[in-house]
């Protein structure tokens, strides 16, 4: 057997022996960004389909969470920067090849638009809330005729935001586990699924709950399909990609990923949702909470595993 022993005199903090430049901030942000994108997508989609009264939670109420989610996510991103007070450089440059730049500009558009979008629903979502100032009420009612335009913009931006959270990672050729084109669609689907699950968790409308349970079930199926294809892709690729997949097929991420993400975060909630749709008595919050927890775990494990996978030479 030919053996290879590599001894390196380098011991750079956060780089050696295993890359660890990104801690909790980036996966948390990827989760919140995907979640926000999912909420905006459904809200905008069902507004365009004139289903705002059929799906009041998804269309009118949940968008109020988006600016909060994005603010927390942006806060986490800011905390991650090591040269913080130069962050404004993101907005003096446009770099088409850099997913990080795409993300920064998308967030600059999505965040204010999500505030305007939620505000346009204020009257319908919270009828008892008194705005006090008439001029503010006038501005809000002036927004309503532009809802369809905003919805179109939001659908496109939500897809870009949801996809980019995965593409940010998949663009790194140097980290074989991230370097899969499936990462973008997988994170988008996971974000949509998180949003759908949170609708089923919070709505009191029976029809909305049942429809979003079906939507979530479909999204979970798509996610499982993507995960299987991602591993098929790795195993059919180069040695470093095979090694990256092996981190999950016997390596140190095997249990966290297959038990926590695929088992508890996808398969069990899918079974519970099927039982619920068949009118069995299942506590509704269990499947929703599991989907959301699985989505968080997916981000943390993928960010961690990507950093642990590398080229060797």
């Amino acid at each position: 057997m030919v053996e290879e022993l590599i001894t390196s005199g380098r011991l750079t903090p956060e780089v050696d022996p295993i890359l660890h430049i990104w801690g909790w901030e980036i996966p948390l942000y990827l989760f919140l960004g995907g979640f926000a994108a999912g909420i905006l997508f459904f809200s905008a989609l069902f507004t365009l389909q004139n289903k705002e009264n059929r799906y009041p939670m998804a269309v009118k109420i949940l968008p109020f969470a988006v600016p909060v989610l994005l603010a927390i996510g942006l806060g986490a991103l800011f905390l991650d920067l090591s040269h913080k007070f130069y962050f404004w450089q993101l907005y003096t440059n446009i770099r088409w090849e850099s997913p990080m730049s795409w993300g920064a500009w998308t967030l600059l558009l999505v965040t204010p638009l999500s505030i305007v979008w939620a505000a346009s629903w204020l009257e319908e979502a919270f009828p008892k809330f008194d705005l006090r100032y008439n001029w503010l009420k006038e501005i809000l009612s002036d927004l309503k005729p532009y809802r369809k335009h905003m919805a179109w913009a939001l659908i496109i931006l939500a897809v870009i935001l949801g996809m980019y959270t995965g593409i940010l990672l998949s663009a790194f050729n140097a980290r074989p586990f991230w370097n899969s084109a499936i990462m973008g669609p997988l994170f988008l689907t996971s974000g949509l699924s998180t949003a759908a699950a949170s609708v089923t968790l919070l709505t009191r409308n029976h029809e909305e709950r049942s429809d979003f349970t079906k939507i979530d079930l479909l999204l979970i199926a798509i996610e499982l399909f993507f995960i299987i294809h991602m591993f098929m892709g790795f195993l059919a690729s180069t040695q470093v990609h095979v090694q990256a997949a092996e981190l999950f097929l016997g390596g140190r991420f095997t249990v966290p990923f297959w038990v926590w993400v695929v088992g508890i975060g996808l398969t069990i909630p899918a079974i519970l949702e099927i039982l619920e749709l068949r009118k069995h008595h299942v506590p509704i919050f269990v499947s929703a909470v599991l989907v959301i927890a699985g989505s968080v775990m997916l981000r943390f494990i993928v960010v961690e595993a990507g950093q642990a996978s590398r080229w060797l030479y």
Partner: peptide, 28 residues
């Protein structure tokens, strides 16, 4: 360029040779 670096560390993640590091002053 130290004055333009925000310390996002995307370049460190992108380097297959792991040739970069975060300087204690924050820039890469």
């Amino acid at each position: 360029d130290h004055e333009e670096c925000i310390g996002c560390k995307a370049c460190i993640a992108s380097c297959p040779y792991d040739a970069r590091y975060v300087h204690p002053e924050g820039y890469v």
